[in-house]
């Protein structure tokens, strides 16, 4: 049974928010996984880094702005947020553009980390 088992879950976010629902519904799984006391890592890669961009204003598209939730992850003991360096640079962004503290990683470091996971969910 699952009781007591702690697995390493990684959520790989490679898509921008709002254009599709994946970023939001990924976040919903992340919160539930934390409630199961699992070892959770979030990765923001490619367009996924846009999920963390500061200053999202969604009134004009009549969508819920879910970006504040990333700042609340801390309260769910989710502290492993990784952003791949090249993905940021390729989009004209720096760490200062992000709304939450993250660890910026090289692609090799990230690839190595992926290999160590038990469960990888991609959205």
């Amino acid at each position: 049974m699952s009781e007591g088992t702690i697995k390493k879950f990684m959520f790989v976010n490679r898509k921008a928010p709002y254009g599709t629902i994946y970023a939001l519904e990924s976040l919903e799984v992340v919160l539930i996984t934390a409630a199961f006391d699992q070892d959770v890592s979030l990765v923001f890669l490619d367009d996924g880094v846009f999920q963390l961009k500061k200053g999202q204003q969604t009134k004009g598209i009549e969508n819920k702005n879910f970006s504040p939730t990333y700042r609340a992850l801390d309260g769910y003991d989710i502290e492993k947020l990784y952003v791949e360096a090249e993905s940021l640079a390729a989009r004209g962004l720096t760490e200062d553009d992000l709304l939450v503290d993250v660890t910026v990683m090289s692609r090799a470091e990230l690839g190595k980390l992926m290999d160590e996971m038990d469960v990888v969910l991609s959205f």
Partner: peptide, 20 residues
């Protein structure tokens, strides 16, 4: 059922494969 069922499946199964 709830999303917890996905997490539980991930915990209990040896492999989780995503199609999307």
């Amino acid at each position: 059922s709830g999303l917890g069922q996905l997490v539980e499946a991930g915990i209990e199964a040896d492999r989780l494969v995503t199609f999307g």
